[in-house]
Design a protein around this nucleic acid. Structure first.
Lengths: 145, 145
DNA sequence: AGCTATCCGGACTAAATTAGTCTAATAGGT
DNA sequence: ACCTATTAGACTAATTTAGTCCGGATAGCT
């Protein structure tokens, strides 16, 4: 199955939550309890997101995280790269690691590269504002297509 | 990480292999050893692919599997559905299973549905002939974009 | 200065999924 | 009959993902 992992799911959730808070900072605790996500896990996720500059951290009382980019500037590609590194849609695309037994005669790297490129393009084209929808809007979209 | 699993990878590999054999049948053993895939595992995979009609099985000596569709008629969507069921890009999109704790106030199902739809469209638009490339062609494609 | 609320980051554990094996039966051609 | 190959399900092993724990650093407030 092709599936996005929890880190990405929670990351999207947290960023959409922050978008609703405008300029105010939200602590990990607040976000976690409102989003129904384990606090310690979200803490890790927010650190990674901070490291790529989508949010800034405010220490101390009343501190937390604040959005520093518009949702339209945050792409799914950037988010997944922040949380999981470069997209590699098949194991054999990884650099350096396990050397594939097939090697020279390998007939699958090329097709998977093509697919990988397509996924990267899709994720690049998907900014968070395109994911900022209500349940009703979403079911409309699905219904139409 | 968003990643396609081995079943799909091996399935693509096997189908591309069959495409090169024209009308002749290839046994699982032959495909497995040529593609560098565990035989028993590929056996399972081919069964599922047969069940959706992309290949037919020929029993007995000199038997094996034969392509019954053109590569252009086999989409990645069809293949993944055959091997893994409907695409659900996030766990919370699954029907019936674990009921999500967030439920009513859930803010993530809608965005994930949007993403899911995009992936489905991409996989539908990707037929196996678009993946039928040599290593050289693939690197050209990547280089251009 | 000291207290408190928060972020930071790494090592660790647990749970779930995926990959792969084993065994036994069935089907069909020669 | 016999040989080759598919079919199917239960089982095990390996890997990945999800989640926890803890000691530390930072900044604001009193």
């Amino acid at each position: 199955m092709i599936r996005v992992n929890k880190k990405i799911e929670y990351g999207v959730l947290a960023l959409l939550y922050l978008a609703d808070k405008e300029d105010k900072a939200a602590s990990v605790r607040e976000m976690a309890s409102n989003c129904g996500v384990p606090e310690t896990l979200l803490s890790k996720i927010m650190q990674s997101i901070k490291n790529v500059g989508y949010v800034s951290a405010v220490y101390g009382n009343q501190g937390g995280y604040k959005l520093t980019k518009e949702l339209s500037e945050i792409t799914l590609l950037g988010l997944t790269e922040a949380l999981d590194g470069p997209i590699q849609v098949a194991e054999c695309l990884e650099e350096g690691t396990r050397t594939c037994p097939a090697k020279a005669s390998c007939r699958i790297v090329a097709p998977m590269n093509v697919l990988n490129q397509k996924i990267v393009e899709l994720f690049h084209a998907t900014s968070l504002d395109t994911l900022y929808v209500t349940t009703e809007e979403a079911s409309e979209k699905v219904a139409v297509s």
